[in-house]
């Protein structure tokens, strides 16, 4: 219980770091998986197909 309390206080109460990481992660996924700009699309083409993203 003591360990848990210590951990919880070390972690802090703010969810901002987690939120920021989620936004960053989703941003990367959008770039590699969804953005249709042709340079990005061509470079990521095989990955999008193999990873199940709608490609073209």
């Amino acid at each position: 219980m003591t360990t848990k309390t210590l951990k919880a206080s070390a972690a802090g109460t703010s969810v901002l770091p987690a939120l920021f990481a989620v936004v960053l992660g989703l941003g990367i996924i959008t770039l590699t998986g969804h953005v249709q700009a042709s340079a990005l699309h061509d470079a990521a083409h095989d990955v999008r197909h193999a990873t199940g993203f709608p490609c073209h």
């Binding site: 990481a21 989620v22 960053l24 992660g25 941003g27 990367i28 998986g33």
Partner: peptide, 10 residues
């Protein structure tokens, strides 16, 4: 890159 994106969310 894609799996790094997934991993950051996870």
């Amino acid at each position: 890159l894609t799996y790094t994106g997934y991993a950051l969310v996870m």
